[in-house]
């Protein structure tokens, strides 16, 4: 809020004083590149999406690449060529990646030279326990109008960090069931307003409602991490809440953070733009592995009655 006010004021001043001019500025064009997008895990076939980049001043729609040859390698051993399905998507037929192994993807077509990317599927990490408690939380997110105390549920998540560099992402969802004309409907909702005050958390990814962090501050140790969720997220007694602990690769971590940051500063001319992490050689995009372990707890929500 504080900075925002100042910024708004500056923008206001600028709109008063400034003048706007479209300039003919030559942005170099070194041709298009192949874009690879894939998040893969050890529970599903591998899927990748191929598309084509655009020059920054190009107003066209993105084009999918539907005629590429895409090969997958496991620990440098050729496994198979992926099968094209639709809209730039390619999938393995039966092959499912394994935890702890390295995978390499190679893709090319008549227009593009070979691009490649390498990543691994991290070992999944079990959640030992999740303790819940009700408490109050004073938010510190820098917004002045929003710094009042809130009644929240505290979810204390306990897990053991394996040795080595590890990266994590935690996401929470809840299940909402209701009956209508004798039929039960079940919905899975993402919880988007996770709150935290633990310094180990690197960032809250606002697009995904997930917190992301590395094990720099608790290497190889047992960790208790508290996340807080406003009570008003839950409407029913004994609401099932699913806590997902993602073990993510370094590439996944760097990509998610930089992508979120690029989006955060987009459109602000006074902020330094953020470069998004890229692990595709000779192309753009992300090819990153992850594993996930889920844990369900039940909390009593505030029962809310809607008045028609």
């Amino acid at each position: 809020m504080k900075s925002k006010n100042v910024l708004l004021l500056i923008l206001f001043l600028i709109t008063i004083f400034s003048c706007r001019k479209i300039i003919d500025y030559k942005i170099p064009d070194s041709g298009r590149k192949l874009v690879v997008n894939s998040f893969f895990n050890s529970e599903d076939t591998i899927k990748i999406n191929l598309s084509k980049s655009l020059h920054i001043l190009d107003d066209a729609e993105y084009e999918f690449i539907n005629d590429a040859v895409v090969s997958i390698y496991e620990d440098d051993q050729f496994v198979e060529n992926l099968t094209f399905t639709s809209n730039g998507n390619y999938t393995s037929n039966y092959f499912i990646p394994s935890q702890g192994k390295n995978y390499k993807i190679v893709a090319w077509n008549d227009d593009f030279d070979e691009v490649s990317a390498i990543d691994y599927v991290p070992n999944s990490v079990l959640i030992n326990s999740v303790d819940t408690a009700t408490t109050t939380f004073v938010s510190q997110n820098g917004t002045l109008n929003n710094t009042i105390e809130e009644n929240v549920y505290e979810f204390n998540i306990n897990f053991d960090d394996p040795s080595g560099d590890n990266y994590y992402m935690i996401k929470m969802q809840y299940i909402y069931k209701y009956q209508y004309e004798g039929e039960t409907f079940t919905y899975l909702y993402d919880i988007y307003d996770l709150k935290y005050n633990d310094v180990i958390i690197e960032k809250f990814l606002s697009n995904q409602g997930a917190v992301i962090f590395s094990d720099d501050l608790f290497e190889g140790e047992n960790l208790n991490l508290s996340l807080f969720v406003s009570k008003y997220n839950f409407y029913t007694l004994q609401t099932p809440v699913i806590i997902s602990l993602y073990s993510i690769s370094e590439a996944f971590y760097k990509y998610s953070i930089s992508l979120d940051e690029q989006q955060n500063v987009a459109g602000n001319p006074f902020a330094e733009p953020v470069q998004v992490y890229n692990n595709v050689t000779d192309g753009y995009g992300i090819f990153a592995g992850y594993s996930v372990e889920k844990f369900t707890v039940f909390v009593d929500g505030e029962e809310t009655y809607y008045i028609e």
């Binding site: 070194s30 997008n37 655009l54 920054i56 998507n89 697009n207 995904q208 989006q263 733009p273």
Partner: peptide, 27 residues
């Protein structure tokens, strides 16, 4: 200098369209 399709991670399987790709713009 360029823009491309980025991948927004969603751990969710659409039962009707397994091929859905959640994309976002990357500069």
């Amino acid at each position: 200098v360029e823009q491309y399709m980025g991948n927004q991670f969603f751990d969710y399987k659409d039962p009707y369209n397994d091929d859905y790709f959640y994309y976002t713009d990357v500069d």
